[in-house]
Structures are given as C-alpha cells and as structure tokens.
C-alpha cells in the first residue's frame, strides 16, 4: 500500500517510557477482525487508553492533552510479540509517522518500514535525553531528517545519527514499497523457481 514520502519530520513527541511494549498492547487481538485497512488508530493502545466501559483512562499519555505530535517515543524493546502489521497500521492511522526507541523488535521494525512509519533506533542515553526534554517542556520539538539520518532535540541542540539500510531509505524518501521492486524482477524469480526440486 502506498504511503506518503518521508523526508524531514519536525514535531512535538509523545513519551511512553515503558519497556517491552508488545504488539498486543499496541492493538489487542480482538480488534484485528477487519478485512480492510482502516480505523485502526481508534484502538491504538486500546486497553491502556480506555476503561472497560470505553471511558478514557486519564493517566494514559494519549489521553493527556499536554502531549501530542507525530513522533512516539517508546522504551526499550518496542513492538515485541505478535507479527500483526495492524500494530504499525494503528500507529500510522493515529497520526504518528515516526517511532523512536533504544531497541526495536524485528518484525515490528520491518512492518513499520513497509507502511511508512519510520523506526528510529537511538542510544539508551539519547533516548533518556529525549524523555527528559519532553518532560521538561512538552512543546519541545524533535526533528527527524531521513536524508541525513539524524534525529535532533531542537531545544537542546542534541543530535544523534541513526541507521537505516540504503534501500529502505530510498523507498521511504520516495514513498515506494517492496512490491514495486519485486515486480520489476519477476523473470529472475521465475527462472529461480524453475530450478527448485520442491
């Protein structure tokens, strides 16, 4: 599915400094019953965000009007567990375009890259600096520059570079996805398949 190009994102950020946030928390399984990709943002972090009677839990950060923005800053080992791409859809659909963490689970990271959410892995120290900056001033802006592969805290000037492979980077800069690439090499794939025993 096509998504918007990602170049430079400057935004305030939402802090969620918990470790091991699994995809069952990002979107519980009972909300995976759609056959179309829409509306998942409403159930993002459903059980942390709402009580059983659907009233908002005031203590949860998404219900705190002080924090907003297109960047979600999570704790270590973000996105572990189930492979559900719905977790990445929910994050995108809610309005986030970038997730920052000191460590991502593999499948979640892949899924993000495939749906137009940029996963930015930073050092534990820089992650701490971002949390502190947001808690000092929720209006603090974070700038994520994909071309330069840098993330900056604008209020403090602190900056760190992040890794992304050059192929995925080009895709995100241009809003392309893997299927476009794979379609272009179908002949190679077919001749490969013809050589297989099983």
């Amino acid at each position: 599915m096509a998504y918007d190009k990602f170049t430079i994102l400057t935004s305030t950020a939402v802090p969620l400094p918990l470790e091991n946030v699994d995809t069952d928390q990002i979107i519980p399984a009972r909300f995976l019953k759609a056959t179309e990709r829409k509306g998942f943002g409403d159930n993002l972090f459903r059980d942390w965000r709402y009580n059983g009677d659907d009233s908002p839990k005031e203590s949860f950060v998404l219900n705190n009007p002080i924090y907003s923005g297109k960047i979600l800053v999570g704790g270590k080992n973000f996105g572990s567990g189930s492979s559900r791409e719905h977790a990445a859809w929910a994050i995108y659909d809610y309005g986030f375009r970038c997730v920052v963490s000191s460590f991502f689970a593999d499948i979640f990271r892949n899924n993000c890259l495939n749906v137009g959410v940029l996963p930015v892995q930073v050092s534990p120290e820089f992650s701490e600096q971002i949390f502190n900056a947001i808690y000092d001033n929720p209006k603090t802006e974070i700038e994520v520059n994909l071309s330069n592969q840098t993330i900056s805290i604008l209020s403090t000037g602190a900056q760190e570079s992040f890794e992304i492979n050059s192929y995925k980077k080009e895709n995100m800069l241009n809003g392309f996805d893997d299927i476009d690439y794979l379609q272009s090499m179908k002949e190679d794939i077919e001749s490969f398949a013809n050589g297989l025993l099983l």
């Binding site: 593999d106 892949n110 899924n111 495939n114 794979l182």
Partner: peptide, 23 residues
C-alpha cells in the same frame, strides 16, 4: 521459517519473494 507482516504476505502472494536482510 518466520513470521511476516501483511505487506509481506502481499509480496509473497504476488512474487513468491520477500526482501530481508540476512539475520
């Protein structure tokens, strides 16, 4: 054998391939 996301399911259906860095 490993788990994939729905975008990758679409890739496998249409091209029998996915794009993965070697772990």
């Amino acid at each position: 054998a490993f788990g994939i996301g729905t975008s990758e399911v679409e890739m496998v259906l249409s091209t029998q391939c996915i794009m993965q860095p070697k772990p």
